[in-house]
Write a protein that binds this DNA or RNA. Structure first.
Length: 450
DNA sequence: TCTGGGGTCCTAGGACCC
DNA sequence: TCTGGGGTCCTAGGACCC
């Protein structure tokens, strides 16, 4: 938690429906529901007009149809249009500060302290937010957003939620607990139905109730990490950084069928088409992964996953498909399947062939000159903790490593992102094993001694 | 014709290694 | 017939988020 209100959270209001209403004037002022329109579809976004009738995100579309009057528009969604509009908004946020973390297509955090020359007084950030909201509406043709500003991600997010839609709330530093404690615990990120039920059973209804519980109690109730997280959030103790460009951890595609499928030949064709899409996305992102996961949802909605880790990372659709087919054969299709999914995880930057790279590379914060390829290799690399060593296939950031020389070894190529904690994303350089910037080296064996 | 799709993080047990 | 203590990797499942 900072002493100044320097983190901003933006949440676009009923985003998909708002884009539809912008593009089709006949929909303005009318209930609009965007989501799956098939028999098994669910609502992604309901416009505020549709919410008045009880339509909600994640509700089955069939239920939303029951609740909403005739004249309600049920739309399948135009994701390219939403993406374009989102890009415009994210661009406006990056004009405010270089440090922007998109959370999803319609949500982002901005670290105002990373920008030069902003007035971070209460009045200053309020004016900044009003101006930002105006520019968003103007640039998007009328899409509105709710803004929260506070001393942490937690308070910014809470703030953006307080006055939806088209809201603006600045939580003054020092008044966090006044705002937080009366709220229901379910307003905290990480408190879903299961956690809420457990908390309610021990009499915890508000964030204030939560704050009265000991760390030991909470850990016993919901587990170590979750318990510690809730204990901190209830005290407005939140130091989470605004992180641009989070690395992708998995790529998957899944599909719910209009009718349950049992025919293995048909299911294998579905696997092939999903594996094709997953492979395409991996190759497009220049990444590959070692673990193939098949997800199945049976006729009775029981869901299970089966996975296999390959000896080498792959982005090959056929290998992904054949692995997933084998997992399906082992799991069986008894009773029929309503959903299949294919995913790849354990991702690394594109590993191609047997290229073997072992060496070290200089990492700087992107503010100085490009490193000299022929720069002399220091005799001794500074000792770094084991977990700070990188190897080809990892994304290396200055903020994770600190400046200086670091060791790496392994397969594939090395991506070095010249980026500092307080500097905008710098250029990304991908070094192959024979790049002069990557000198041969003899890293110490970091396997723990027995 | 209840219950999407794309993700993230955590937990827990067993295998395996030194 | 005593039998440790960490680590990491793999697999499976669950909770949660938008």
């Amino acid at each position: 938690m900072r002493g100044i209100p320097s983190i901003l959270h933006l949440d676009l209001d009923a985003f998909f429906a708002a884009v539809e209403q912008r593009d089709k004037p006949s929909l303005r002022g009318r209930p609009v529901v965007v989501g799956g329109v098939g028999g098994r579809g669910v609502v992604a976004t309901a416009s505020y007009e549709a919410r008045a009738y009880g339509a909600r995100s994640a509700m089955s579309t069939a239920e939303a149809r029951r609740r909403c009057p005739s004249g309600t528009a049920f739309l399948g969604g135009r994701f390219a249009a939403y993406r374009r509009t989102s890009d415009v908004v994210m661009g406006l946020l990056r004009e405010v500060s270089p440090l922007v973390e998109p959370v999803s297509i319609d949500e982002a955090y901005v670290d105002l302290a990373a920008a030069d020359g902003l007035d971070l007084s209460l009045d200053g950030v309020s004016a900044l937010a009003r101006d930002l909201k105006e520019r968003i509406a103007e640039a998007t043709g009328g899409v509105t957003g709710s803004v929260g500003i506070g001393s942490s991600k937690l308070m910014a997010k809470i703030g953006s939620d307080l006055q939806k839609p088209d809201g603006l709330v600045v939580v003054a530093p020092g008044r966090e607990l006044e705002v937080l404690h009366p709220l229901p615990v379910t307003r905290l990120g990480g408190v879903g139905p299961a956690t809420a039920e457990r908390l309610h059973q021990v009499g915890v209804k508000t964030v204030g109730d939560l704050a009265a519980r000991s760390l030991t109690d909470l850990v016993a109730l919901v587990g170590r990490a979750h318990g510690a997280g809730l204990h901190a959030l209830a005290r407005a103790d939140d130091d989470r950084a605004v992180v641009p460009d989070r690395d992708v951890k998995s790529v998957s595609h899944e599909e719910t069928f209009e009718r349950d499928l049992t025919d293995v030949a048909v299911l294998n064709r579905e696997i092939d088409s999903m594996a094709t899409r997953v492979g395409e996305r991996l190759r497009k992102g220049a990444i590959s992964g070692r673990t193939v996961t098949l997800k199945l949802r049976r006729y009775d909605f029981t869901t299970l996953t089966r996975s296999q880790t390959l000896p080498q990372p792959t982005d090959d659709s056929r290998l992904i498909a054949s692995t997933a087919r084998r997992l399906l054969a082992e799991a069986g299709t008894g009773g029929g399947l309503r959903l299949l999914g294919v995913g790849v995880s354990g991702l690394s930057v594109y590993a191609q062939g047997d290229l073997f790279a072992e060496g070290h590379v200089e990492v700087d914060d992107g503010t100085g000159p490009e490193p000299e390829p022929e720069a002399a290799v220091p005799e001794e690399a500074p000792a770094l903790p084991v977990e700070k060593r990188w190897w080809p296939g990892q994304d290396v950031r200055h903020e994770e490593l600190g400046p200086g020389w670091v060791w790496g070894r392994g397969l594939g190529r090395v991506t070095v992102r010249f980026e500092g904690p307080r500097t905008p994303p710098g250029p990304v350089r991908t070094l192959s094993a024979d790049d002069p910037a990557l000198q041969p080296a003899d890293p110490p064996d970091w396997r723990p001694e027995g």
